[in-house]
Design a protein around this nucleic acid. Structure first.
Lengths: 334, 334
DNA sequence: CTGAAAGCGCTTACAG
DNA sequence: CTGAAAGCGCTTACAG
């Protein structure tokens, strides 16, 4: 590849001039501009992004860290999140470096990532990466709240506690007294928040949430989680409604219900804390669900991060409200 | 952030030595190594990936270009592909820069991407990017075959023509005489290949594929494409079987069938050229489909690209066979 | 085993 | 409007 030096020599100017022609950071005469551009064209010259980054100390790219389970499956939530991040970054001229390594293999363990900042998904309790990034002076935004709470960290999150509260209340008001909750993985902050919200709803109705009615996601794909949970508990535990972690989990629930000849919603109501509106709407019955707006979360996370890159003193939290969307999978008694 | 110079000074050694301690490219005495490491630790020093890349002329990252439609939705195929690419790259120490810009806004228009090579999805007819990358000397691997054919380009692809042939044959052998084909977007090479394969199958059975029985994806989401196509054609066109571009499209078909009270598979058989095995298997009825092994495609593409980065003279094509998986959505007459 | 110096390909005050 | 030179933070022959 031709370099800025080649162009400078061949055009008979200094490389500072060539630089200015491309960056337009200082005015260059029409004549010289044209000559430089012509030579660049001939030589097939394109500015080297890397060298530029080193000089200006900005890479114009951000890292997106999504630790994935060993089987490597992304949920619809993940993909929509990614989309939101990429769209906003692109709009502002940033690239996205996608990382799906588990926490222990994070490349920043050994060297400084070639990015201007990082978006971190699924922060865990006392996430060690948060401390490390701060120490390295890497700008950071979380998707999901930090645990323990820390208002000096920028993050975006759904109002998980409230949303779970609302769903619980909706079900209890409609005559359900016992709900099976197929929650997210136990170590995720979102799982704790949702459990707490549901618990509050029970309390408000003078009831209490029993431990055996809350399960936590582990080691399978979403639909199997839903499918197996029903097979293992139906008839043993008594419940007339189910809240699932995602729409895929609900898909598994519906399959189990078909096989056990349980009518949905007549005998069993299902609500998904969903992340794939299209899927929910095409299921049979159409799924009552809570829209998490994953793309919006990604979009806001990117905005927050870029804001922080431009002014490191800012830190801000944004909460995206989850929306209950009533479709056909819940029985309504009153 | 501390630099290699800071460490060198404070440890009383040259920066070449510090460099060697971290890269282990030349032996450094135990004593010095320990001193340097201790100082680095104290100063919170981490090697700057960017500066290293500039010096060694390698970034250890690759670009993944997935042009997305304006609404920005990725298919399950895309996500699995991405997963395959990321897994293989990670294994070999590469990062992945994800780009979803439309062809016209490709950043390499203006500068050299900070990557060692590029994987390009959905190449179109006479894709202009292919020429540009070659001119810029950027290593390139396609997912999907180049059109026009070019054996000097590395690519991975399914055996789309054969697979469509097989599906067509399967349906025709089982007594279907007219099939509605909800094909991919018209400008994709895969759409042409599949149509040709299906056409051959018809010919072999002494029949011919009529134009009005082939539709092309455009401007909606997958399920709507399936749903609307049935609503618009059922009763007008005569067909007893449908081949859909993806499982999401099949989902829309099933919804339309429910609404029109068409029994699947008794009155209508459905086969999806699928990309989401889990979804296909959880649909009702469970969906007979063709598994595309998107993750495998991504994995192979990454391997091919890294191979090429290490030896630019290689170019190779790999074809991943698509697999027909019979489940419950097709009627079998004989 | 270690150091001094040139080089990777840019940008940016400074000077004119 | 343009040039000369230092600097960004590394690596790597070359020399000892």
């Amino acid at each position: 590849m031709a370099t800025i030096d080649d162009v400078a020599k061949m055009a008979g100017v200094s490389k500072g001039t060539v630089s200015s022609v491309f960056s337009k950071k200082r005015p260059i005469s029409q004549q010289v501009t044209e000559r430089v551009l012509r030579v660049a064209q001939e030589l097939g010259y394109f500015p080297n992004h890397l060298a530029r980054s080193l000089a200006i100390k900005r890479t114009m790219s951000i890292g997106l860290k999504i630790p994935l389970p060993p089987d490597g499956t992304m949920t619809a939530f993940d993909t929509q999140m990614i989309n939101g991040v990429i769209k906003e970054c692109t709009k502002q001229g940033y690239r996205v470096v996608l990382d799906t390594l588990p926490e222990q293999e994070d490349p920043t363990m050994y060297s400084q990532d070639p990015v201007d900042g990082v978006i971190l998904l699924n922060p865990r309790k006392n996430d060690s990466r948060i401390k490390r990034y701060r120490k390295m002076g890497i700008h950071l935004v979380l998707v999901g709240r930090p645990d323990p709470h820390d208002e000096s960290i920028s993050y975006v999150d759904n109002n998980n506690t409230e949303a779970a509260h609302e769903v619980g209340d909706y079900l209890l008001r409609n005559g359900h007294e016992s709900i099976l909750f197929l929650n997210a993985a136990a170590d995720m902050t979102v799982a704790q928040d949702r459990r707490q919200g549901l618990s509050e709803a029970y309390r408000l109705h003078g009831l209490s949430l029993r431990d055996e009615c809350v399960m936590y996601y582990a080691h399978t794909n979403g639909t199997d989680y839903g499918y197996m949970s029903i097979l293992n508990t139906y008839g043993k535990l008594s419940y007339t409604a189910i809240i699932t972690d995602t729409d895929r989990v609900a898909l598994g629930v519906l399959r189990a219900a078909r096989e056990l000849d349980i009518k949905v919603p007549e005998q069993l109501s299902v609500i998904a804390l969903s992340n794939d509106a299209i899927l929910a709407q095409d299921m049979n019955p159409r799924l009552t669900s809570v829209e998490l707006s994953a793309e919006k979360l990604g979009d806001e996370a990117a905005k927050l991060l870029i804001e922080k890159i431009n002014d490191s003193s800012v830190h801000r939290q944004v909460i995206i409200p989850a929306q209950l969307v009533v479709r056909e999978s819940c029985s309504v008694f009153c």
